[in-house]
Design a protein around this nucleic acid. Structure first.
Lengths: 324, 324
DNA sequence: ATATAAATGTCAAGGGGTTGACATATTTAC
DNA sequence: GTAAATATGTCAACCCCTTGACATTTATAT
């Protein structure tokens, strides 16, 4: 493979000049610019990014630590983050922790060793000591890790409020919130707060049901949905913490002759593609995934010039479809 | 950040010794081993991977170029590849081409510049010239890129055969195959071959319907499904090229009072989680995603010792659920 | 005690770019 | 024509780790 030196020789200039041009550190006359470009073409030269990053002490890579990719919502996140990462000329180092804290810590130090430009944390690690002696920016996605680590998220509380108001408009009296077991620090727990407070304002106390933690990993809620309906046959509406649960509730209803939205209104969360593919199509809370992702990436990219606000919240909105 | 030199000084040995230990190139006495380990701990030392890779002229990174992550099946692929990548101590550089050939080529040269250990191509690039002058191994996932690039895929032909035989057992007489517009080189086209040949063996010619190419990007088949049913009201069974299409067909049927499996039998492809979440749950062809991914990663990891077979095919199986 | 093997040390040259300091050559402006 | 501005060149150190050649010390075996 051709090196800087080869290019310089071929173009009849110094490596310094070539390097300066490649990093546009100074003006280069059109003439030399041409010569150099020609040499680069002819030699099919590509700067060795490793050497480059080593010199600069920082790579153009962004690390994303995420719990899983086996989930429509997180896929959207990965997709979106990759897009912005590439847009800014950065590369994405994807780390899937599979919900294991230990792995997350490992990944973290790996990213450190690779001198990444920044880390986006979309998993639920709580062991923070290791992170703090890290010069690159860290940004937490949809969760609060510590008072010192900036986070970006959507307005979970309002998501709950919107869902509750929508159900109230539809005259629901016996609402339930079906969620995953919450890990500490996850902003998703605010959804319930918004949901419950709104209903309480109308003298209604919603039922809350937490699926066992393993469901969040397997994404299979069949058993807990059955248990849920056994325990709460009286409900007339259910708000779920993601579309996958909602979809499985729709399946349960279809199997058991519960008409949706007639007998039961269902609201999902996330507005993944799923929600419009199932029948009835899901009313759901749309998260501003793209805004969140762009913000996270831009925070890292512009870290040197702009400091990152400790908390950034983007608005959500309710998308009405057929299930309410 | 501490460097090798710092560790060596602290441990009272030479950098050579430390390096040798870290790369276990020679035996190190327990005594020095201890001293070094202690120094590493105390300094919280982490080898600079950039420098390391630069020296070794190859990084421990694997590049994955994939068309999208906005799709359940590809998510499974990403998830699985990441898992094996990590298992072997490699890191995953994720490149999402968004179906743009130009971007794929760019990504490719970026990966080259980063001296990745290998590239897994799960997109549909056909411009191969640029790839061939690449020393690291390339492996194509579920497609044939050129006779010189090894590929790993599942037995698409047999997938079609299994679906056809299953429908034949259910006495279907007017089958259809609903697929995406095929790009050249995609092995998915063999599915139709297997499906059609099997039916032809029974004197039946299946209908084939190709959704417009944009559907594969948007994943929204609603319009083309409507057109499909308008044009082919007589069908009694449909085999689709992925579960997402099948799911949307289920939705169409529910909306239009077509009973499944009563009036119409539906078979999907991929066996993504979706297939068991919808109602009726989808009969589908299960792809050995994990085998494919493991094979792809291992091929790269073991490249120096083992050459990669030009073609590797893993078996598929039919999972019967409620839609047939 | 001696020969042999094992463990470290020493030294230095890479790997491929970046960068600062300073010198020199080439343009541009008036 | 001269001064100022612009464009290159020169040189060398640095980023941090790897590796080969060879020398030296220490442990093990007989």
């Amino acid at each position: 493979m051709a090196t800087l030196k080869d290019v310089a020789e071929r173009a009849g200039v110094t490596v310094t000049t070539v390097s300066r041009m490649l990093n546009n550190r100074v003006q280069i006359s059109p003439k030399t610019r041409d010569k150099i470009n020609r040499a680069i073409k002819e030699l099919d030269y590509q700067p060795n990014e490793l050497a480059r990053s080593l010199s600069k002490k920082s790579s153009q890579m962004i690390g994303l630590i995420i719990a899983t990719a086996n989930n429509y919502f997180f896929c959207k996140v990965i997709n979106s983050i990759e897009r912005y990462t590439a847009m800014y000329g950065y590369k994405l180092l994807l780390c899937i922790s599979n919900h294991e804290t230990e792995k997350e810590v490992e990944y973290f130090s790996m990213l450190k060793a690779h001198k990444v430009a920044g880390v986006i944390l979309a998993s639920h690690t709580q062991n923070l000591e290791k992170y703090l002696n890290f010069t690159a920016p860290i940004i937490a996605f949809d969760r609060t890790l510590s008072p010192h680590i900036p986070s970006v998220c959507s307005d979970n509380f309002n998501g709950g409020v919107l869902a509750a108001n929508h159900l109230l408009e539809k005259h629901c009296k016996r609402p339930a919130y079906f969620r995953d077991t919450q890990k500490t620090g996850m902003h998703a727990s605010f959804r319930y707060d918004g949901f419950a407070e709104t209903f309480r304002g109308h003298g209604i106390e919603p039922i809350i049901y937490s699926a066992p933690p393993e469901c969040f990993i397997s994404m299979r809620y069949e058993d807990s949905i059955r248990a849920f309906f056994r325990d709460h046959p009286e409900i007339d509406s259910v708000f779920t913490s993601n579309d996958i649960i909602a979809m499985q509730i729709l399946r349960y209803c279809a199997q058991n002759g519960i008409s949706v939205p007639g007998q039961l209104k269902v609201i999902g969360y996330d507005d993944t593609d799923l929600s419009s593919f199932c029948y009835p199509a899901l009313t759901t809370i749309s998260q501003p995934v793209d805004d969140n992702c762009r913000f996270a990436v831009e925070s890292i990219v512009n870290f040197k010039e702009k400091s990152i606000p400790i908390s950034t919240v983007f608005p959500v909105r309710l998308i009405q479809r057929e299930s309410t």
